[in-house]
Write a protein that binds this DNA or RNA. Structure first.
Length: 127
DNA sequence: CGTCTTTGACCCGCGC
DNA sequence: GCGCGGGTCAAAGACG
C-alpha cells in the first residue's frame, strides 16, 4: 500500500515533521521506519483500512483543541503504528499518519485501500 | 469471555 | 532540578 502516490496537489500550510529517531540509542529497535501521512475531509476520524487497530493513547496537541489518537496494529508481531489528528483550523480535515509496514495480510476484505482513497478524497502528503 | 477504550501515570529529551 | 511537550504503559471498565 505504499505505492500510492499523491496525484493531486495539496495546499497545506502545515508540514509533517520527520522526527529524528536515531537508531542504536536507547530504543535500539528499528531505526528507520516508513512513515507517511494523508489527510481527509471526513467527519469520521478513524478510517477502516482493513486492519485491526487498538488504541493505546490520546494526547492533546499544542495549538490544537482536538486531541491526537495513537493506534497500533493489534496483530501479534506486527508493530505498525498510526496516529490520527485533526487539523487545527478545520475540524473537517483529519490527518492520519502511518508508521511501519504490516507483516500480515489484511483481515477484512470490505474495502480496499484504493477505494478508501477515492471515497474520501485522500491526499497523501509524504512517504 | 475475549477484545478493545479510556485515562492517568510514567518516561524521556530539552530548555531554562 | 523542574516544568513542558510528546509518546507509551497498563489497569479497569465497556462492549459484543
Amino acid at each position: 500500500m505504499e505505492k500510492h502516490k499523491a496525484s493531486s496537489p495539496i495546499s497545506c500550510d502545515f508540514k509533517l515533521g520527520y522526527h529524528n529517531c536515531d537508531d542504536g540509542n536507547k530504543r535500539g529497535k528499528e531505526g528507520k521506519q516508513h512513515r507517511y501521512a494523508f489527510q481527509t475531509r471526513s467527519q469520521i476520524d478513524v478510517l477502516d483500512d482493513g486492519y485491526r487497530w487498538r488504541k493505546y493513547g490520546e494526547k492533546s496537541v499544542k495549538n490544537n483543541k482536538f486531541p491526537r489518537s495513537y493506534y497500533r496494529c493489534s496483530h501479534r508481531g506486527c508493530s505498525v503504528k498510526k496516529q490520527i489528528q485533526r487539523h487545527w483550523r478545520d475540524e473537517e480535515i483529519v490527518v492520519t499518519t502511518y508508521e511501519g509496514i504490516h507483516i500480515h495480510p489484511v483481515e477484512k476484505s470490505t474495502e480496499s485501500f484504493e477505494q478508501i482513497l477515492r471515497n474520501h478524497h485522500i491526499y497523501i502528503l509524504s512517504l
